[in-house]
Design a protein around this nucleic acid. Structure first.
Lengths: 107, 107
DNA sequence: TAATTTAGCAACCAAATGGTTTCCTAAATT
DNA sequence: AATTTAGGAAACCATTTGGTTGCTAAATTA
């Protein structure tokens, strides 16, 4: 099976989990309360997130807190980077067009 | 089935397709030459990308050029935004720490 | 007009997903 | 010592994925 960030964020439940633990580390039980599914289903998502290294389990007594590995999130950002450049370039282009239009109207 | 940007970019072949057509619109056959799989397999990925509205087919004679819908890519960027804020905040925090260290060494 | 090229569509298949339920172990509580 | 609680592991299931091959239709070329 594929185990990378893109696989990790493909599922909406997993994106929601990421959103929740970004605010604060949480246990599987606490997380499960936010979803309409069994604790085990959430645990499975946590396992995938752990395998993708987007999340790190930290034992605390009999509880396990899952924390977000922010570094891994940057991989998505990095993949996006060249595309962001393209749309910024297009915006600048449009900017130039608008500029020329203004000048034309003035003159 | 789920049909959103995150599903679209989950597959490495699809990410590669996106990368290729970001440079220039391409036909399924032209795309297939870049991969070690059948033209039909690539076409299936194009269908998913089209359903996710990340790509737009444009008929030209008997050829169909697929172009990237850059706007849709921004949805990933938008989802990332709050997380980016967090890691920027952490960097600033670290910055503050380094600053205080410097001052301590000076004094 | 006949042959070729482009590309979508359908059927098929093995493997992966996303969920369930049941079971087990280890800590914490009584 | 017995019980409750937290949470992982396994078995199971339906659906989806990602690939294959074979077909057809339309446009192009000879």
């Amino acid at each position: 099976m594929r185990r990378d960030v893109f696989q990790a964020i493909a599922d909406p439940t997993r994106r929601a989990i990421i959103g929740l633990i970004a605010l604060q580390a949480m246990t599987p039980n606490a997380l499960a309360e936010h979803f309409d599914m069994s604790r085990q289903a959430v645990s499975k998502h946590l396992r995938i997130l752990t395998e993708c290294e987007l999340v790190k389990p930290e034992q605390q007594g009999r509880e396990i807190y899952y924390l977000l590995e922010m570094e891994k999130m940057k991989e998505v950002d990095q993949w996006l980077e060249p595309f962001r450049k393209i749309w910024v370039a297009r915006f600048d282009e449009l900017d130039g067009v608008l500029d020329r239009m203004k000048k034309k109207n003035k003159g």
